[in-house]
């Protein structure tokens, strides 16, 4: 119960920071995707099941804060990424410094790029493929910059409020 509230609080804070704080700290007009980063950090810490739950919730939150329909694209992309990170987690050194950076970079490119392509396919975005690629790379780099702080915070929180059953996949 408390863990659920902690996760909700983390996602809520990430959403507020992403929509209110980081627009003023945008690099070249691009902002980091903190909700995606939080999803990846939780999945990396606690596994695929947590990645699924958190990814779905974070993606749905991001969808609901958008003005252009349809809702669900971010939820789909985030939960798949959360699950995938959870699945590959055993193959990564959990205490490694480089693993969070590599994960933030890779998931940033795949997540943002994936959202851009799906949104474009569904007509929710008119962004060109070039713009999608450029956005994905810049946002992924921004996410990578923030990854050490976000991963450390979530590792600490999740360590204090661990899941009831460890998911080892």
């Amino acid at each position: 119960m408390i863990r659920g509230l902690i996760i909700a609080l983390v996602l809520f804070t990430a959403a507020v920071a992403q929509t209110s704080v980081f627009p003023h700290l945008a690099i070249g007009g691009f902002r980091p995707d903190l909700l995606l980063l939080a999803t990846v950090a939780f999945a990396f810490r606690d596994g695929a099941l947590t990645g699924l739950y958190v990814g779905f919730a974070a993606g749905l939150l991001a969808d609901l804060l958008l003005a252009v329909p349809p809702v669900g694209i971010n939820a789909l992309v985030f939960l798949v990424i959360g699950y995938t990170v959870g699945v590959v987690r055993p193959y990564l050194a959990s205490e490694s410094v480089t693993a969070p950076l590599a994960l933030a970079l890779a998931t940033g490119i795949i997540g943002i790029g994936g959202y851009g392509v799906v949104a474009r396919t569904l007509g929710a975005s008119e962004a060109s493929l070039g713009l999608v690629l450029r956005t994905a790379v810049i946002v992924a780099l921004y996410d990578t910059l923030l990854a050490p702080v976000v991963f450390a915070t979530i590792r600490r929180l999740s360590g204090r409020y661990p899941p009831e059953r460890a998911v080892q996949i």
């Binding site: 349809p70 789909l76 798949v80």
Partner: peptide, 25 residues
């Protein structure tokens, strides 16, 4: 068991998101 549970949940949540996308679209 956990792995199977995660896969079932993945399929279920993907389905939910697709329904959401369709309904909203």
């Amino acid at each position: 068991f956990e792995r199977r549970r995660a896969r079932i949940l993945l399929a279920a949540l993907v389905l939910v998101t697709l329904v959401l996308v369709t309904v909203d679209y």
